[in-house]
């Protein structure tokens, strides 16, 4: 599991075609809403929009682009729920910003890094969501470390496969 530090010169910045940039996040939001219809426990453990946010942010390596991607995906996710719009939006904005900032400093192409980064960002995302939902929206949420850590690892594993798949859509900038 090699986590290597990269210098500015080594950084490879990627971009995505417009259809990919729209279609992939859209599919992530769609599957996140549709899969629980078949596998009810899915939404309790996996967050596909978050994985897509992390991937796009790390690949683009541009914090502004990362935070905007996160905000857009998060707001779309909020729009499908019944709670006020913005809870996922804020959480994913932070994640998008953080992932792209980290992408500048780390080699995020290796499996090990992706596992660690995804695990970490999942936990950060859940903490932010929990704080906003409890603090602002006053949702009655309960925090469970075993559940959150288990879900973080599950997302990281799924993320590794998903990132490998999405790597094919990247274009060198």
């Amino acid at each position: 599991m090699a986590v290597t530090y990269t210098s500015r010169e080594q950084i490879e910045v990627y971009r995505f075609s417009l259809p990919v940039a729209i279609f992939v996040p859209l599919m992530a939001v769609f599957f996140q809403a549709f899969i629980p219809h078949i596998i009810p426990a899915f939404s309790s453990y996996f967050d596909l929009p978050l994985l897509v946010t992390i991937f796009f942010a790390m690949a683009r390596r541009n914090p502004v682009s990362g935070l905007l991607t996160g905000a857009a995906i998060g707001l779309a996710q909020d729009a499908l729920g019944s709670h006020p719009i913005g809870v996922y939006g804020i959480a994913k904005t932070f994640v998008g910003y953080g992932a792209s900032s980290l992408g500048v400093k780390l080699d995020v192409e290796s499996v090990g890094t992706r596992l660690l980064v995804t695990t970490g960002f999942y936990v950060i995302h859940e903490v932010l969501y929990f704080l906003i939902a409890r603090g602002m929206v006053r949702l009655d949420l309960h925090w469970s470390w075993p559940h959150e850590l288990g879900a973080a690892v599950a997302n990281a594993v799924l993320g590794v496969f998903l990132f490998a798949l999405m790597d094919r859509l990247k274009q060198r900038a």
Partner: peptide, 22 residues
């Protein structure tokens, strides 16, 4: 501070929207 400014603006706007909805 460009990136941080953008982040602050995005977060501020969303919090504002959230507050209005609540």
């Amino acid at each position: 501070y460009r990136n941080v400014t953008f982040l602050a603006a995005a977060i501020f706007l969303q919090i504002l929207g959230l507050a209005i909805q609540i």
